[in-house]
Deep mutational scan, measured.
Amino acid sequence: MTFKAIINGKTLKGETTTEAVDAATAEKVFKQYFNDNGLDGEWTYDDATKTFTVTE
């Protein structure tokens, strides 16, 4: 399945996608990506659209 992340950061904005077997796996991938890029913020997840949003 394809999962999307919308990034609303102070220094980084945009979208990225990942292929994962479930939402928990996708969340781990996205959180690692955000940690690697120095992002920290509020997380939400919309199961209907398979979209994570992080707002810094």
Rank of each mutant, 00 (worst) to 15 (best):
M1R: 08
T2I: 14
T2D: 04
T2R: 11
F3T: 01
F3N: 02
K4D: 03
I6L: 07
I6A: 03
I6Q: 05
N8D: 08
N8E: 06
K10N: 10
L12I: 11
L12S: 08
K13T: 09
G14E: 08
G14P: 05
G14M: 15
E15I: 13
E15M: 13
E15S: 09
E15T: 11
T16F: 15
T16H: 14
T17H: 09
T17K: 06
T18C: 14
T18V: 13
E19W: 15
E19S: 10
A20R: 03
A20N: 02
A20L: 02
V21Q: 11
D22Q: 01
A23H: 07
A23L: 05
A23M: 09
A24W: 10
A24F: 09
A24Q: 10
A24N: 07
A26P: 00
A26Y: 00
A26D: 02
A26K: 01
A26W: 03
E27N: 03
K28M: 11
V29L: 11
V29Y: 15
F30P: 00
F30E: 00
F30N: 00
K31Q: 07
K31S: 04
K31T: 04
Q32F: 05
Q32T: 09
Q32W: 06
F34D: 00
F34A: 14
F34Q: 02
F34T: 10
N35P: 03
N35Y: 14
D36K: 11
D36M: 12
D36L: 13
G38D: 06
G38Q: 07
L39E: 04
D40T: 13
G41V: 12
E42Y: 10
E42F: 12
W43P: 00
W43D: 00
W43R: 00
T44G: 05
T44M: 07
T44V: 10
Y45M: 01
Y45K: 01
Y45R: 00
Y45C: 00
D46N: 09
D46T: 03
A48S: 10
A48T: 11
A48H: 08
T49D: 03
K50V: 02
K50T: 02
K50R: 14
K50P: 00
F52Q: 00
F52H: 00
F52L: 00
F52Y: 04
V54G: 02
V54R: 04
V54I: 14
T55G: 04
E56F: 13
